[in-house]
């Protein structure tokens, strides 16, 4: 599983970075979405994996030691990270939409030139 999640992280990061470095703002947006998924999965995998571990939901009468459960802290971090990246993505979505409305181009570089940047 460790190998596979590493592969998944590779795909998400490589795809995300590639898209983010494109000129098309829509691609940049999709790239950011991929990248945030990659970061979340990366963070989760740092919590470690074992076949036997249980979800961090304690049993009412259970007597298991803490080491039997999956790391709850990374999960809590990622949960908020997911929601926040949703909020951030929403803002970028609006930026992309407004950018098109204002300048009728999706090319980030072209837009920069219009505004007088070199």
């Amino acid at each position: 599983m460790g190998t596979l999640s590493a592969l998944m992280v590779t795909i998400l990061f490589a795809g995300g970075l590639y898209l983010m470095m494109r000129k098309d703002l829509y691609e940049v947006l999709l790239g950011i979405m991929l990248l945030s998924n990659g970061v979340n999965l990366f963070m989760l995998s740092m919590g470690g994996w074992s076949r036997e571990q249980l979800p961090p939901i304690l049993d009412a009468e259970q007597t298991l030691p803490a080491s039997q459960y999956a790391d709850p802290l990374v999960q809590a971090f990622i949960l908020t990270a997911i929601v926040i990246s949703f909020g951030v993505t929403a803002v970028i979505v609006v930026l992309v939409a407004r950018s098109w409305e204002e300048s009728q181009t999706m090319d980030a570089a072209e837009r920069g030139r219009e505004e007088g940047e070199p």
Partner: peptide, 11 residues
């Protein structure tokens, strides 16, 4: 799905 593999139902 990966979250599930990692035993993170909330995620």
């Amino acid at each position: 799905l990966f979250y599930l593999f990692y035993k993170a139902p909330d995620l």
